[in-house]
Computed example of a mutant assay.
Amino acid sequence: MTKDYLRVGKIINTHGIKGEVKVLRITDFADRFEPGSTLWVDKKQSNELIKVTVDGHRRHKGFDLVHFQSLDNINEVESWKGSELLIKREQLEPLEENEYYYHEIIGCHVYTTEPLYVGKVIEILAPGANDVWVVEDENGSEHLIPYIEPVVQTIDIEKSNIIIEPMEGLLE
């Protein structure tokens, strides 16, 4: 995957025999999978990007079921299992102030207000009310940092730095 593309989902299986695929969504924007949307299938095993247009979408048991234009047979999409679904970077929608895309946060270095280095954001979990950042320290240990106002003080995307005020017991 080049830097010109961003992940929005992963094809985890086929669904039925008419070319529908089961997608694990990796985006907050559900409209990425609406009919008429353009996506790229990143076939890692063959190192190719395939441009597709969505012509069918529905939710089923927590997953997105997506059908692509002119692909009406399971045999045409069977080899796509495990492939990433991408958008071009220019397809990003502008965000409100103090909102960030996951790819902007992942890789940032986290410091306390002291300042002490906590580690680097390696993953973002979305369990419910707020996101939780998985921060790996220099020893390989992971810390779960809730993305809430009392904890996250400043985010500087240009410098890839985040300052937090840890709650009692957060970094233990």
Rank of each mutant, 00 (worst) to 15 (best):
G119Y: 15
S83F: 10
F33A: 00
H67K: 15
L86V: 08
G19D: 06
E48C: 08
K10G: 03
Y5C: 02
N75T: 15
S83I: 07
W133L: 15
V135E: 13
R89K: 15
M1N: 06
Y100F: 14
I74M: 03
I145N: 13
E48M: 11
L144T: 11
G82E: 04
E165N: 13
V21W: 03
N73E: 03
R32M: 04
P166S: 08
A129G: 00
T112A: 05
T14P: 11
V151Y: 13
E99Q: 14
S79D: 06
R89E: 07
F29K: 13
I162A: 08
E78W: 11
L49D: 00
Y5A: 04
D28A: 03
P146V: 10
R7Q: 03
E93M: 07
G82Q: 08
V8F: 05
E90C: 05
N13W: 11
E84Y: 14
I50F: 13
G82S: 11
I26W: 03
W133F: 15
N98E: 05
K88C: 01
L170P: 06
L49S: 00
N98P: 02
L116K: 15
K61F: 02
P35S: 06
L170Q: 15
K43T: 06
S160P: 03
E34V: 04
E84L: 11
L65H: 10
E97T: 13
I124F: 09
S37I: 10
V152R: 09
W133N: 07
I122D: 01
I155G: 03
E138Y: 13
A126R: 14
G16W: 06
E78R: 15
K120I: 13
E172F: 14
I124H: 08
Q69W: 15
N47P: 03
G56R: 12
Y147Q: 04
E20M: 08
N130T: 07
E97M: 05
G9H: 05
E76P: 02
E149W: 13
R25W: 03
Q153M: 04
V110M: 02
V152Y: 06
L49V: 01
D55P: 04
I74N: 02
E97W: 08
L6W: 09
N47F: 10
L170W: 14
L49P: 04
V52Y: 09
V41K: 11
K18H: 06
I26K: 10
V8D: 00
K81S: 09
T113R: 13
G56H: 07
E138R: 14
G19A: 00
T38E: 03
S37N: 10
Y5T: 11
I87C: 01
L86A: 03
I50R: 06
T27Q: 01
E90P: 08
W80K: 12
S46H: 12
L71C: 03
G128M: 09
F63T: 01
D131F: 13
G9I: 09
T53F: 07
I155C: 06
I148R: 12
I162C: 05
F33H: 07
C108T: 15
H143C: 05
S79P: 06
P35N: 04
S160C: 10
I122F: 02
T14C: 09
T38F: 14
F33W: 12
R7D: 02
E20P: 00
R59Y: 00
E158G: 07
G107H: 07
E138G: 02
E168H: 10
K88D: 00
E96Y: 11
I145T: 14
V132P: 02
V23E: 01
N130H: 15
E149G: 09
